[in-house]
């Protein structure tokens, strides 16, 4: 809503978060804070509750406990309204609109920023009669595609892209929403080394140049160590360690749970 105030950034405070599905306790009393402008990594073995945590922050699930983003309590804000507060996300399993063109995919990310309501939006007709704000949005989308090195693919259906391109497209879609906080769920899973390097640089750019706070789930420890300021380690739904990456990897419990050492 107030995008222009975003430069200061907002702090994310997660406190005593619990979530269970039937008999499975996916999260249990997890608390941590994310300072504005930092990159926070969430690591842990499979089934540790990492994606559940991201889903709670983005509003797919309603957990017990409290979450504050700046001054506002998040827990009962509906998922589709969280984008207006500045929270955007990507998904572990690529979730692009495969039938739509790459440009349309990115444009939907900026949908909530359009001021005209949906009745008025019905009246603007595509490339021939769209409103000024839509033209500006489109220009911004094309610029973003340029940065993603996908400008030449703007008109192809997103379903035809390679896996890595689809992952990048998702990040692009989230960025067009002008978030303050970006949640990335395994952005580099399944990528080749070269692609990972490229995406890492890009995530740093997003963080520094665009001043966006990032919370990301990542398995690749090299990536985690180069990118993140802070690391939260989850195991069986509980937080077992937190701190700068160099310290966390030395933690005994972490080595046992995550790196499989005795």
């Amino acid at each position: 809503m107030n995008e222009k105030k975003s430069s200061a950034g907002l702090k994310l405070c997660i406190s005593d978060l619990s979530m269970s599905f039937g008999g499975v306790q996916a999260l249990e009393g997890v608390s941590f804070e994310v300072e504005p402008g930092t990159i926070h990594a969430i690591i842990g073995p499979n089934g540790a509750g990492k994606t559940t945590l991201i889903n709670c922050i983005s509003g797919q699930f309603i957990p017990e406990g409290t979450m504050h983003f700046g001054e506002r309590e998040l827990t009962h804000v509906r998922a589709h309204n969280r984008i207006q507060m500045g929270i955007a996300r990507t998904f572990q399993h690529v979730n692009v609109y495969s039938e739509l063109s790459v440009l349309d995919n990115i444009m939907i990310g900026g949908h909530h920023r359009l001021k005209s309501n949906w009745i008025r939006q019905c009246l603007y007709w595509g490339p021939y009669g769209c409103s000024r704000e839509e033209q500006m949005l489109q220009a911004e989308a094309l610029e973003l595609l340029e940065r993603l090195e996908m400008r030449h693919l703007a008109d192809s259906p997103a379903g035809e892209l390679s896996y890595g391109q689809q992952k990048r497209l998702e990040v692009g879609r989230a960025l067009l929403a002008h978030p303050k906080l970006l949640l990335l769920d395994e952005p580099m899973a399944g990528m080749a080394k070269q692609e990972k390097k490229q995406l890492s640089d890009w995530i740093l750019d997003i963080n520094r140049e665009m001043n966006i706070t990032i919370v990301m789930i990542e398995h690749d420890m090299t990536v985690v160590q180069t990118l993140s300021d802070q690391v939260v380690v989850l195991d069986f739904g509980r937080k077992i360690a937190e701190g700068p990456p160099q310290e966390v990897v030395k933690d005994k419990r972490v080595r046992k749970a995550y790196l499989g050492e005795d």
């Binding site: 309204n81 609109y97 939907i108 939006q121 009246l123 603007y124």
Partner: peptide, 30 residues
Amino acid sequence: GLFFRYTRTGLVMRGAASSQMAARSVGVPL
């Protein structure tokens, strides 16, 4: 047909049909 192809609302509806979760994450009121 034109509505779904060319209007912003049509685009959002096609997006939601393609993936509800992703649509919600970019602020589409389902």
